[in-house]
Design a protein around this nucleic acid. Structure first.
Lengths: 122, 122
DNA sequence: TAACAACAATTAACATGTTAAGGAATATTA
DNA sequence: TAATATTCCTTAACATGTTAATTGTTGTTA
């Protein structure tokens, strides 16, 4: 992920923050639990990340009035702009990634990692 | 690495500390730089890790009398015992890892990851 | 409805990764 | 040899992973 990290260091956000933005950009308004799952983050991490991202003006946090334990998180214009500005560049990095391996080997790698994944969890 | 982490949580040490112990067990007395490289750790990390491991009695730290910038690090008996007690178990986990994929796919995975590695660095 | 269980999220405490700045010792060179 | 550069390591400041304890809120049930 180093090339991605290098790209992101320009933007001042981290890989995890980028992931949060991408998920929010794709799915729109989400409650914190769903966001954490889709961004592959543990709750304590999301709590901190959301706080810093709100301070940076990349997301908004609002309480669910129906269930005040819950929280909704949405991307701001500034956050969306960041996504828009760097999506192409990120896509190129992934393309380069595939090119390095070749399409076939890239698929093979994903398959192998997927087969290890269940084992990773227990 | 989750199975390894699970094993290590019994022992009260982390993956990185385990790596440090393994390297020291294999190579014996090492200066900090070499140890950091072989254990794939950045210096600031090693500084902290070594401090906690010394407090736990797993390693010793001594200044190089010839060059007092340098530091030598060695494994203690307690550290070696920890390695001895868990090496078999770790080997079994790796074996299980290979068995999940099959010998051939395991090699393939390592190859693919190795081919990505140079890209990861720049 | 009052006690208790369950849930969503936060906080705390620890460990590490990462970049930058700093300190002490040694090496180099003008 | 005095000034400078380099080297080895530590500190600092921030971000995250991880487990456990805690706080509010909502649900359940006796």
């Amino acid at each position: 992920m180093s090339p991605i990290r290098d790209m992101l260091s320009e933007t001042g956000i981290t890989e995890q923050q980028w992931r949060v933005l991408r998920v929010l950009s794709e799915f729109g308004l989400l409650d914190a639990s769903t966001l954490a799952n889709r961004a592959s983050l543990l709750f304590p991490s999301l709590t901190r990340i959301a706080t810093t991202m709100r301070k940076k003006g990349l997301i908004t946090q609002t309480r669910d009035v129906a269930d005040r334990r819950r929280q909704f998180i949405a991307i701001t214009e500034a956050g969306q702009k960041l996504i828009d500005d760097y999506t192409d560049q990120a896509a190129q990095i992934v393309a380069e990634f595939k090119r390095t391996l070749g399409e076939e080997d890239y698929e093979t790698l994903l398959d192998l990692l997927a087969r290890l994944d269940p084992m990773m969890r227990d």
